[in-house]
């Protein structure tokens, strides 16, 4: 099948990519655009490491054909990372040791960003509900829940 051009907005900039049908957003981000903060833990929609925001909603980029998001707004971890310093959610992860191997961290940070954008003061239960599809094999989630609550406080006082 022939390739075609798909245009969308990525981290505030318009981009165009030439892709075969059914190419996933994850493949476009990692292999076409070399934005590797979005990880590839399973490509089955089972681990959450590839979570990005599409129009502000968290999506698993490994299951998302890029044609389906033509013309839409995509934000990856690169898009929320300031040139200097860290985003408050990133700072909260750093300060709370909510990272061990680090492979789940990008997806965790994006899913928590989506949560805090729509619910700035979530309960612990709401944080757990939000991250339930993201696998962390190292931390046991405690430090990640702590970081999410800390991030909410930082964002509210900012």
């Amino acid at each position: 099948m022939a390739s075609r051009i798909v245009a969308f907005n990525l981290n505030g900039r318009d981009v165009e990519v030439m892709v075969k049908p059914l190419t996933t957003l994850q493949t476009v981000l990692r292999e076409h655009l070399h934005l590797t903060a979005t990880k590839s833990g399973c490509r089955q929609g089972g681990c959450g490491t590839c979570t990005v925001l599409v129009n502000g909603e968290p999506m698993l980029s490994c299951l998302l054909p890029v044609e389906d998001i033509a013309g839409q707004q995509v934000v990856t971890l690169e898009g929320i990372t300031p040139v200097e310093g860290l985003h408050p959610i990133q700072q909260a992860f750093f300060d709370n040791y909510a990272i061990q191997c680090g492979y789940c961290s990008p997806g965790m940070i994006m899913i928590i960003k989506a949560l805090l954008d729509r619910n700035p003061n979530p309960t612990r239960q709401e944080v757990m509900d939000a991250i339930a599809g993201n696998v962390c094999r190292c931390t046991g989630y405690e430090s990640i829940l702590r970081a999410a609550e800390d991030a909410a406080r930082r964002l509210q006082s900012a």
Binding site: T36, L86, S105
Partner: peptide
């Protein structure tokens, strides 16, 4: 003390093998 690799991990800038091509 804070983790040495922490900033790389939270920004997604840590390079894992699959990120190399």
């Amino acid at each position: 003390v804070p983790r040495r690799d922490g900033v790389g991990h939270v920004t997604g800038k840590t390079v894992y093998v699959d990120d190399i091509s």
